[in-house]
Nucleic acid binder design. Structure first.
Lengths: 243, 243
DNA sequence: TATTTTATAGTACTCTTTACCATATCTTCA
DNA sequence: TGAAGATATGGTAAAGAGTACTATAAAATA
């Protein structure tokens, strides 16, 4: 049998002892974004155990030996929010040697978007420790979670420009002003109102409803709904969402 | 001590037996792209051992217990090409339960770009089995490597539009026609020659050299060089490369 | 009914992209 | 030596997209 040194590498060797290579833990961590009409927020938990007791952390868990990474993330999200079918996207894998005190743990980071109104913390789960934080208010975090969050925010800001995922953060029905304000806070910029309208409406991705805004102290705006099917159809014909 | 069922989850529990969770292998796989002036190519190896004996595969290896993922990828690339400092970007992590016959292995996929002229296969390494394949010519591959390759190609095509990484695939000195042809084959489109020139040159990212193309049976074109420092400076001022 | 506030429509201007043409320059071959 | 062929390079006009701004409409409130 070959020794470790004489082999080309562990992966392609004939009959190596692979035991030391199968000693990793894998976790998933999911940065959950929401939007309450004013601020972009992120769902953080306060750790109740060591290490990093009391620190803020991104929800996550170790992946079970017979569990898919996506399945694990959905499990975490379900335990946390009670919701299924949340927008989910893999972000980056953090695999530094010393990133976790318990041992060698590589974490697959995801980020997800949800309508903040759909979220009801479930009392039976760890979600009792969970809360929405404005993204500016995040301080020190457990492990390398601050780094993970920064990557997630950066990805979200890039994503939101070339894919119509902003709607995942809004209620089913929204005004054009709602949409504009979301983009403005998300991207930290200002848009001209009239031009924003034009740009969005000419994309033909919104269904104008026969409903108006209510309980508002001025002329109510029309409500719209995102047309996911139409976006799919347009995408296949080469349409590309932009800003 | 808590049991598995009573805990919130493995990650946050107090004193659980985490042994079964630390049983994963982690590998890295790297899709290496090159360009020979005509075709976009990818570096594949022919597997010399089971499983998937004889199949084409993407170069990769198991990550060592005390090794960073990026370090592992650089090691694989160095063993394969003899090169350091190759453009490297993390792509996606594939963590399906049954993707590897040897056990539970999650693989962190990377893709990298190199100047094909710099590559000299090293006889002492597994690179003797490595060869450049035109990306259209890829057939069945070992494991889920075809899926990994598809993701890498898709990412490359997207990346090349908003970041000036095409130059990683060209020699230090190149003509505008070279650059245009690279983009055309990479993106599978056609550009107007005059307009392509204008667009690229107005970005002010290329250094015009006092050299001309040689050994060519027509009017020789000027050679250019990518100005990485200038790109860095412009980026900080908010410049955004596009197409 | 007047006033306030925001939604919505429209318009003129600028800048960018696109399609295309003209000329320059080099090689090759008669 | 000079014409032919091929590609590089420079330029221009039309179309289109983006921008800044103005005007009008509609609802709520006092």
């Amino acid at each position: 049998m070959q020794t470790l040194n004489s082999r080309k590498n562990a992966y392609t060797s004939d009959h190596p002892d692979l035991t030391p290579f199968f000693s990793f833990g894998i976790s998933v961590d999911c940065v959950v974004f929401g939007y309450d009409g004013v601020d972009v927020k992120v769902l953080v938990i306060e750790r109740g155990t060591e290490p990093y007791l009391g620190y803020q952390a991104i929800p996550g868990d170790l992946v079970h030996p017979q569990e898919d990474a996506v399945t694990a993330t959905q499990r975490v999200l379900r335990d946390l929010t009670g919701l299924e079918n949340i927008y989910l996207e893999q972000l980056y894998t953090f695999a530094g040697v010393d990133r976790h005190p318990l041992g060698r743990v590589a974490t697959i980071a995801y980020f997800s978007l949800l309508k903040i109104g759909d979220y009801n913390p479930r009392p039976s789960s760890w979600a009792t420790d969970a809360q929405w934080m404005p993204i500016q208010a995040l301080g020190e975090m457990a492990f390398d979670h601050k780094e993970i969050f920064d990557a997630a925010l950066q990805r979200l800001q890039a994503r939101v420009r070339n894919q119509p995922i902003g709607f995942e953060l809004l209620p089913e029905e929204f005004t054009l002003a709602d949409l504009q304000h979301l983009y403005e806070t998300l991207l930290n910029t200002q848009f001209d109102k009239a031009n924003f309208r034009k740009k969005i409406l000419t994309m033909d991705l919104l269904i104008p409803l026969d409903k108006m805004q209510k309980a508002v102290r001025h002329r109510p705006a029309r409500l719209y709904q995102f047309d996911a099917l139409r976006y799919e159809a347009l995408s296949k014909r080469g349409f590309h969402f932009e800003l």
